[in-house]
């Protein structure tokens, strides 16, 4: 009886803690951001009344369309590259014995114990004109003089892929783990070749992992201002750079907030797409498929 009571109290405690934590550190700040986004810019007090929609009109201003497009392209390329690397990687991991798999996963996660800012500085040293890449390229005679790698879109994409790759691999691995081997064997028995087995069985069944991985890579990529600052040369390449500049340099908090809300809404829309895609997958060819 006592044990049961303790158990219930413990549960209550955990739930209360979680909810208050989320309330104080997630809900409240977001509500403040949403609230600020409707206020008027005031250089003395950061934000003041009256309420206005002007900030949102400004978000849609033509000036930022370029940055928005740039963000989409950079994040899109990052996502595709992460997927192309992450998919075979996750597949191989799921096919391995338990020990080697644990070791490989461990090796992928270890760099994450180092602060990402420090790792970005390290990439900066690799990509510089006197960095490792250029030294190798020049000394092997592949190029005559060092290439401009740093402070380019290439450097930003390189950094983003490097930082975000594990977020692609982990959901994909979860999908591969759930993949029922007997389905693939059945496909082979019924005469499907490797390509068909992949496109008709493996790909649809791992689609939730693909969509989840892409979302978890794509969305943060648009906000990672420090990667664009350090590797891209502090030009406003990502939406995150604009938000940072509005808060720290221009001190237009309402506008910066409106931009943040815009990103959150975009994220919500993409999550909705994910939800729909998931439903679709479960309906057609998924484990819950009536025809299976």
């Amino acid at each position: 009886m006592n044990a049961l009571l303790a158990h219930i109290n413990f549960r209550k405690l955990v739930i209360t803690l979680t909810i208050s934590w989320l309330g104080i550190f997630v809900l409240m700040p977001h509500l403040m951001v949403v609230g600020t986004s409707f206020l008027t810019h005031d250089s003395d007090h950061f934000a003041s009344l009256p309420l206005t929609l002007e900030n949102y009109r400004q978000v849609l201003d033509a000036t930022y369309a370029g940055v928005f497009w740039n963000s989409l392209v950079l994040s899109g390329i990052t996502t595709v590259i992460a997927l192309l690397i992450g998919y075979p990687f996750a597949y191989l991991l799921s096919r391995m014995g338990r020990v080697s798999r644990t070791v490989l996963l461990f090796m992928m996660v270890i760099p994450f114990w180092t602060n990402s800012l420090i790792r970005i500085y390290a990439i900066k040293m690799l990509l510089g004109k006197k960095g490792l890449f250029n030294t190798v390229l020049v000394s092997t005679g592949i190029v005559d003089k060092p290439l401009q790698l740093l402070y380019t879109d290439f450097a930003v994409i390189f950094g983003l892929v490097y930082i975000l790759l594990p977020f692609m691999v982990l959901p994909l691995m979860a999908s591969f783990d759930k993949l029922d081997q007997s389905l693939i064997e059945a496909g082979r028995d019924l005469g499907a070749n490797a390509f068909h087995r992949f496109s008709q069985i493996i790909l649809p069944l791992t689609m939730p992992g693909i969509v989840a991985g892409c979302l978890i890579v794509f969305l943060p990529a648009m906000g990672m201002f420090y990667v664009a600052d350090l590797l891209g040369g502090a030009k406003s390449l990502l939406l995150g750079n604009i938000i940072k500049n509005q808060f720290l340099v221009a001190r237009d908090w309402p506008f910066g907030s409106a931009f943040s809300v815009f990103l959150i809404v975009l994220m919500g829309a993409l999550l909705w797409v994910y939800y729909k895609a998931n439903q679709y997958v479960q309906k057609k060819g998924g484990m819950d498929d009536q025809n299976l």
Binding site: S43, S236, N245, Q246
Partner: peptide, 19 residues
Amino acid sequence: GDEATALFNQYWEELKAGM
């Protein structure tokens, strides 16, 4: 002053965003 500062900042954003 605030007015000219805001103008400088606005153009600055445009310069960096337009790159």
